[in-house]
Design a protein around this nucleic acid. Structure first.
Lengths: 226, 226
DNA sequence: CCCAAGTGTTAGGCATGCCATAATCCGGTT
DNA sequence: AACCGGATTATGGCATGCCTAACACTTGGG
């Protein structure tokens, strides 16, 4: 229960917390420093060193050779940054008209310097939104995050109906591609057909049918009906 | 004409450029490292060291023992940051409703991370404004800054008429004090009376007459009629 | 004209932050 | 029991940016 946080939480530390959070959510178990290192683009040794620092700050539990997992404090740090990031993305799109595919990198910088003050004002201005422009959920003020079960579009079979809820925000190419075709999170869809051998899908959005496959269909998440 | 800038321009360097710019404008001559150090709250030795770095980057001309002055490149750095700062202040007040006396410290942080992209979008959104909420002029896109001759309120005599144009943005107390009385930059004023011995002034804003003196009256800048 | 006082500068160091290489060390599997 | 791959330590590099202490310059008053 000791309140660590004796030292400042730097941008790098926030990035580590974010990365661990993301990996841990997906894996459902502690994260190896190797995976962490790869995600962050550093060597395993560097990640190991930083993990030690996070441990000293009380942000992670680290069983050597067993992996890292966030403590409650660490999860709070991660969720705070994620909240910043997603609020900023929505804000930049809604209020300043920043193109959909550019908001990510802007938010990536600003998330680390946004004051609680501004966070709050932005949240109010936006009416306490629950999802960002990519459909990713925004942690609440109390830092809770509702997890909705979604499926990769690629994993669906012909006949499936649902709502396109989100897509990774980190690939501007994909975002541009979708934006050009008028496909945005929130829209309902129906899988009309799917080619065999993990092939492309024919998906109806409104009146339009689009052909989607490859990494794109794998990155798109769908909330199924029912 | 060599384009230096081989190394990154850090926040600290931007702060030094800003400080040198401000002091140089006021003094009209090269700045001593002592004055610079005092302004930035560091020791003269530290300032001396940083000035050397700015010199290496081609941002200042430094005649040892003779003072520092900004080069064109240095002036551009300073004006760019000042533009960021003042645009942000106005933006935060106008769009997010940040209290007048708090925008300064927010802008102080954000000015260093604002991308050109966002700067541009903010400027457009605000309609290319020329002054910030404190009445300070905002450098143009091309980084020119119109200098208007102003006088300290304290220096005026009874009978003087003019427009209250600006007040230092760095003292929240003063800003709150003025805001509470409904005094804001842009308003016309008339000095009704002034007590002797550099005493307080009786100043009319609209229908209201306020008594102003001390450091406050010295910080308030007035553009005289004529 | 010279030297004291004040102003500037250099030298050396320290703290932080973050990453890298190289070598070693677990730990589970074969 | 040996091995392999993942993980860790040890060591160091590089950049920032600040400090103290000691030294150097400039200038004005005597």
């Amino acid at each position: 229960m000791a309140s660590h946080q004796l030292i400042s939480v730097t941008s790098a530390i926030e990035d580590y917390a974010k990365a661990i959070y993301a990996l841990e959510e997906r894996a459902g178990e502690p994260i190896g420093t190797n995976a962490l290192a790869e995600r962050l683009g550093v060597t395993p040794a560097s990640a190991s060193g930083m993990v030690k620092r996070l441990g000293d700050l009380g942000l992670v539990e680290h069983q050597p050779y067993r992996g890292v997992s966030l403590t409650d404090a660490g999860r709070r740090v991660a969720l705070e940054v994620i909240r910043h990031h997603r609020l900023l993305e929505l804000y930049l799109v809604e209020t300043l008209g920043v193109p959909w595919d550019r908001v990510h990198e802007e938010a990536e910088v600003l998330e680390h310097v946004l004051s609680e003050q501004l966070e709050e004002l932005i949240a109010i201005k936006l009416g306490d939104p629950t999802t960002d422009p990519h459909g990713d959920p925004i942690p609440t003020r109390e830092l809770t995050l509702e997890v909705v079960a979604t499926h990769s579009l690629q994993s669906l079979a012909a006949g499936a109906c649902g709502r396109f809820t989100r897509v990774s925000d980190s690939d501007p190419e994909m975002l541009r591609f979708l934006a050009e075709r008028g496909i945005a999170p929130g829209e309902r869809l129906e899988v009309i057909d799917k080619h065999p051998f993990d092939g492309p899908l024919f998906v109806r959005f409104g009146e339009q049918v689009h052909v989607l496959g490859g990494a794109l269909a794998r990155a798109m998440r769908v909330e199924l009906d029912g």
